[in-house]
């Protein structure tokens, strides 16, 4: 029984599906902490423009990034569907602004393919693959680690640069 379950777990991945600039994206549900409505964001000076600022999430200060700006997509206006998806990866908690969050899917890993070189203008480095859903929808799987980590990498480089001054 347990092996059966494991087998299924291995072959399937649960995705939170969201929309961004008219494309459908998905991230592994294990990294999604919660999804909240858009709220006032406090701007932080001297940060890259994709960092919108910080919000107060029940007493915690959480940075919020705009995925449009992060990927260089055309900016979208905030409306009643706009959500902040709070994701957590290796102790870094970040809110990501997305156009809307639609559903949670179970996708067999077999239907995920490596990403083509360029999708909708997004650098393929940020993508894990493309999943084909039953109704022929394509779901682009984000590589959260890349999306979040690269920032840290740069941060580190900056610090080194400052340290050498």
């Amino acid at each position: 029984m347990a092996t059966e379950k494991e087998k299924i777990a291995k072959e399937e991945i649960q995705l939170v599906v969201f929309r961004l600039a008219n494309e459908t994206y998905g991230v592994d549900i294990n990294h999604v902490q919660e999804i909240i409505r858009m709220q006032d964001i406090t701007e932080i000076p001297r940060t890259p423009d994709f960092i919108e600022g910080v919000i107060n999430l029940r007493g915690r200060i959480i940075p919020v990034i705009d995925l449009h700006k992060r990927f260089g997509l055309p900016e979208a206006e905030t409306n009643s569907n706009t959500r902040i998806m709070v994701v957590e990866l290796e102790k870094v908690t970040v809110g990501m602004i997305v156009d809307s969050v639609s559903e949670v899917l179970r996708m067999p890993t077999t239907s995920i393919e490596p990403p083509p070189s360029m999708i909708n203008g997004i650098d393929v480095a940020y993508l894990k693959g493309v999943g084909k859903w039953e109704d022929n929808r394509l779901i682009i799987l984000l590589d959260l680690e890349r999306v979040l980590k690269e920032r840290e990498q740069r941060q580190l480089e900056q610090e080194v640069a400052v340290g050498e001054d």
């Binding site: 001297r46 910080v54 959480i62 870094v92 908690t93 970040v94 979040l148 610090e159």
Partner: peptide, 13 residues
Amino acid sequence: KSLGNFIGKISGI
């Protein structure tokens, strides 16, 4: 409260 690792150290803040 700290701004966290993701944003890191910002001069002036």
